[in-house]
Design a protein around this nucleic acid. Structure first.
Length: 226
DNA sequence: CTTTGATCATAC
DNA sequence: GTATGATCAAAG
């Protein structure tokens, strides 16, 4: 049996060693190693795969707004993929603040910092959680092209927020980065500055990466046919 | 089949 | 409510 709660990895190399060692294992096996209960499906345990991988790899950030491996500056993201290695879901990045001050500039935005270095762990299979299989890990930082794409999408969104045009924050915007609802329900709200510079409650939203964007990363790093 | 809008669990 | 971990499920 493995250690219930492994210590954080010393460095990126050790993290990659651990991640590589998980490749080919089922989530059921990994859960057994760390004495983690397995849900029968993900309908009421949507974050389970990600949280299991955090435990298995020694992540420490928990629910704090910092990278999963703070001392390494690395964010961990599980990524469900099809048999052909294509992402089947978008990837949540972070909350989208709806006021210009909170959004800040691209250079010091949450999105840019979170995506500066990411460990992607593909997960294969769409059956029971226990039967899903860990894929080959990918450690990634945005290329110049990818950063430019993210920046352009982010700045288009930021300008809408700056003008208080909250109704224009639609999911269809953005080639790589989109804004979508993010909350417990459609009633989940957050404070926002509207076009009359008044503070109002508006639907809570988050930044997400489109599957085409994450798919291109996997295809390149794993030499998959696109 | 892909995308969008909605939703679930948990910590604080 | 804000943050983390995301996927579900209806619509296009």
């Amino acid at each position: 049996m493995g250690t219930a709660f492994p210590a954080p990895p010393r460095d990126e190399a050790e993290l990659m060693m651990r991640a590589t060692a998980l490749a080919g294992r089922t989530l059921g096996y990994v859960a057994g190693q760390h004495v983690v209960a397995i849900p029968r499906d993900l309908r009421r345990a949507k974050g389970w795969p990600g949280q299991l991988l955090e435990i298995a790899l020694g992540a420490t950030a928990s629910s704090r707004p910092i990278p999963d491996f703070p001392h390494l500056g690395i964010e961990l993201k599980s990524l469900p993929v099809s048999a052909r290695g294509r992402p089947v879901e978008s990837t949540y990045v972070c909350t989208a603040p709806l006021s210009p001050d909170a959004l800040g500039r691209w250079e010091d935005s949450w999105v840019r910092h979170k995506l500066a270095r990411v460990l992607w762990i593909p997960l294969l299979g769409d059956g029971s959680p226990a039967e899903r299989v860990v894929g080959t890990p990918v450690i990634w930082s945005p290329t110049e092209e990818e950063e430019a794409l993210l920046r352009a999408d982010w700045e288009a969104i930021a300008s809408l927020v700056a003008m208080g045009e909250l109704w224009q924050l639609r999911s269809q915007r953005g080639k790589a980065l989109q804004v979508r609802p993010k909350g417990a329900s459609r009633e989940s709200t957050t404070w926002a500055l509207d076009d009359g510079a008044q503070w109002v409650q508006d639907m809570a939203r988050g930044f997400y990466l489109r599957p085409s964007f994450t798919g291109a990363i996997l295809a390149r790093e794993l030499l998959l046919p696109e």
